[in-house]
Amino acid sequence: MDTSPAVRGRGITKSFGDVVALNGIDLDVGSGQVHGLVGPNGAGKTTLLGLLLGLAVADSGSLEILGTTVGRTLAVPEGVAGFVDGPGLYPSLTARQNLTALASLRRYDAGGTGNVDDALEQVGLTDVADDRVRGFSLGMRQRLGLAAALLTKPRLLVLDEPSNGLDPAGKHHVHRVITELAAGGTAVVLSSHRMDDLAALCSEVTILATGRIVFSGPLSKLAAESGELDYRLVTSDPATAHRLASETPDLRVVPGRDSGQGPGADVVVRGPVPALDELVVRLVQAGVALRELGPVVPPLEAAFLALTGTGTVLAQTDQEDQR
């Protein structure tokens, strides 16, 4: 696989009036790589995606896309496609008309209607190709937006929340298309709030918070950033489990948390994995059946919350709710 950089950004800064949307961002996305962009609302994701699509230019720093330095608005090279803030579709036109118009504008209509049909088939919208987009669900619009991007045979695909509103089948379609594109050498930059999407698709992620990068690297490295996680234990004897957890070194019982199965039905503990292993041994030795053991918050999500600082806020809110 070609690993030459599709995107290379250094020290990218972008402000809107007094608001600094991006502050010294470095970004590297290799060809054939699916790169996730995550961050809380207002972190600067959309601004960064807009820069990649050429909708705006950075105030300072350098941005190289597909080997071309981008210094002016709408000056990104051929081969960049995608959407931010949802796909731009015209509801009074049919799915086919939307794509045909785009193909004509971008001069990809040389192949006749074949390209359009191929794109529609790839996202599973062949059956509704001649229906007006007005009647499409959010998920269908997302898929049509992806088809519009595919039409231009992109080498860099920029997608903003591509799984928004998708049912499981639609999500499967979209994931498959993105994976195939990446396998074919297309670099994909996608933003998402759904960690399961990132885990399923991305090899690397960049986490933004208030315009700055708080993490950038492989997913495996991100999981390690999560620190100590909360784990939920569902056992045959919650009282004994609670006592044993309290007695296990390096492990703390988190008070006031339950799974919704009723007070005292489970135990939530916090600590490193070895301490958790020790607790399992003690439970077995005490004859307590372990029915369920897993993190309360998935590791990637926990890492995200920890890195962006939103975890603290959520925990505090949680505690206030408990009171």
Binding site: V57, T73, V76, L105
Partner: peptide, 23 residues
């Protein structure tokens, strides 16, 4: 801040006016 859109000097060619007109 207002991002002034200007004509690109490099990069992909803009769509022909007639194509845009038809659209």
């Amino acid at each position: 801040m207002t991002a002034t859109i200007t004509e690109p000097r490099a990069g992909a060619r803009p769509a022909p006016v007639m194509h845009g007109y038809r659209f």
